[in-house]
Amino acid sequence: MGRNYEFNREETLNRAMQVFWQKGYKATSMKDLIDEMGIQPGSIYNTFGDKHSLFLEALNHYGDVVTTNTLKLLEKEGSPLENLKSFFNEIVIRPADKKCRGCLVVNSVVELSPHDDETAVIVKNIMKKIESSFYNCLLNAQRKGEIPENKDIKALSRYFASSTHGLLVTGKANASQEELQDVVDVIFESLN
């Protein structure tokens, strides 16, 4: 029974995350959540608390998925530099609806972070994890001689995190694939 409940909880949380991701925090109503999560309002309150606590949990869940996937991609066997490039190329070649949906972290920074400290803390932790994955990837690339020894990879890892934000927003603003590819090519010129 306990295990079943846990499974349902995660599945339900995942559905809530999809709604927030698609619509944004403010535009998501309790009714949207009830419809999509397929449970009674009372169960939502009992299990997750109010809309804001549900959102924080959904954002954390999203962060876990994204940081795990990023780490997996960047630590793949072979060339660290190529792994980093495939991280950015994936954003370039995403289908339009995914570009339009963007990233829940970026969307939340934009919508909530100045007035919502809890969201800001979660976002900061997610970005730190992504940045440290970039850092390790760049360090490995440097060790393999793929990027020059004299590069400040700490600064570069922040720059790549910032560039990821920029690229996601540019993609959301309906830029052509060609333009996004140009942006990514220049992002990587910093490593020459």
Partner: peptide, 24 residues
């Protein structure tokens, strides 16, 4: 390729403003 650089700078502007909001 200054056309590509211009696209990059526009995108980098967005990225930088967002980074500024993440308490760095």
């Amino acid at each position: 390729d200054i056309k590509a650089l211009s696209s990059f700078y526009a995108s980098a502007t967005d990225g930088l403003i967002l980074s500024g909001k993440t308490k760095i």
